[in-house]
Amino acid sequence: MSDKLKSVKESHEYKEFVKLSELGLVLPNKICGNENCKNFESEMEPDLRKREKNAKNLILNWRCRTCRVYNSVYAGSFFSLFRKPVKIILAVIKCWAAQISATKAKSVINLNLEHQLTEAMILGVYARLRQICTLAVDKQNLKLGGSGKVVEIDESLYCKVKHWKGKDLKRRPVWVFGLVERADGESSGRTYMQIVKDREAQTLLSIIYDKCESGSIIFSDCWASYNKIAMFKNFTHKTVNHSVNFLDPNNGACTNRIESLWRACKQKFKEMNGCKRVYIQSYIDEFIWRFNNNVTTDRIACYNLILREISKFYRPGISLNEFEEKVLSENRTSFEEDELSNENFETCSSSGSTSENEVNAEDIFSEFCVVYRRMKTIQLQ
């Protein structure tokens, strides 16, 4: 080993690179891809160099000894999305893990690392991390409750036209439907929240049947859309009348847990003084990820976990378009897709046979719609 290579491997930049490669965030080695090189497909060596002559920071690169080709060690990784040193990006991720706002993170990093950052760059990193959280939540396979477990459900208004006046009066309010599994000896509890088009039974019950396991005990308020919960699936449904009690004295139903989660989730929006409607679900996904992994208050555990999630969902070599397609396919709760699914709900038919334990939510609601129409016909007669 030459003295230059030895000094490179003893540098802080290389030690930081080794830690990231052990986590799977970057590739541990690289081969030369120059076909005209004598050492074609041979392993390249790490090397430190300046991007420009007057630059202060040294950049770690892969270097071929024969053809002198340089490639960044972070090319194709999550860090290549931002034109900043890796230590700066890691500092931004630490601020995100500690739930520090972009404005405060800018001041902290500029003061401690003596690097001028813009708030837009920090918001860009935060947005990518929320996309990672959306994929890590795994909405399609997330199930709550089970035999004898309590699941609280409720809906909450996140966005509305103030005083019902102004030019935005035609814009519909944003309702979010939430479920939370109470903590027990086996788990610390999990939650799921989703933007919904409306609060009709057809919309809410489809989510309940999809996310709650059979045998769950469901606590809710007396909203009329919940009346048919136990009709088509093995649920025990208990209600509490909030105009009379917070805790029902007869059946013990209480929804204080989901109500407290609404406050905790909305606190983020109050600190930001609101946000665009298209970003609401991404912030909700971040809250779900923190809550389900029990890292809401533990910034160190949150930082270590998000690095593992990045290595899982944005592994080195993946293209940005492929990553964004995964995010779009996972996040199927936009207003447009929700409208399409609700408009075509009664006309869609299931393919194949299903057993008694594997009941399709669409089959349940097609049956529910038939029963509902019959009840309406009887009332009219």
Rank of each mutant, 00 (worst) to 15 (best):
G185N: 08
Y126L: 08
R315E: 02
S243Q: 12
S7H: 09
Y158V: 05
R68E: 13
I109P: 07
N273L: 06
P316T: 09
P28A: 09
S341M: 07
R68N: 14
N321A: 12
W262N: 00
A98P: 04
A201S: 15
A91S: 15
W62K: 11
N61I: 04
K149H: 10
K276D: 10
E22V: 01
S216T: 15
F17Y: 15
L305D: 03
T134P: 01
F335R: 11
I288V: 13
V108T: 13
D221L: 01
S147N: 14
L328K: 14
N141V: 03
L60N: 10
A102E: 11
T118V: 02
F40M: 00
L305N: 09
S319K: 12
L307R: 09
M193D: 02
C254I: 02
M193I: 05
Q379D: 06
P28E: 04
F246S: 15
N227D: 06
R51F: 08
V26S: 01
F335N: 08
T118Q: 11
R315W: 04
K84M: 09
G189N: 13
K30I: 05
K30A: 14
I218Y: 05
S243N: 15
S355V: 00
S11Y: 06
F323A: 02
M193E: 06
E343A: 15
V150S: 10
I100C: 07
I310N: 05
E367D: 07
E358T: 08
I207C: 00
F323N: 01
Y303F: 15
S72E: 09
S216A: 07
Y209A: 04
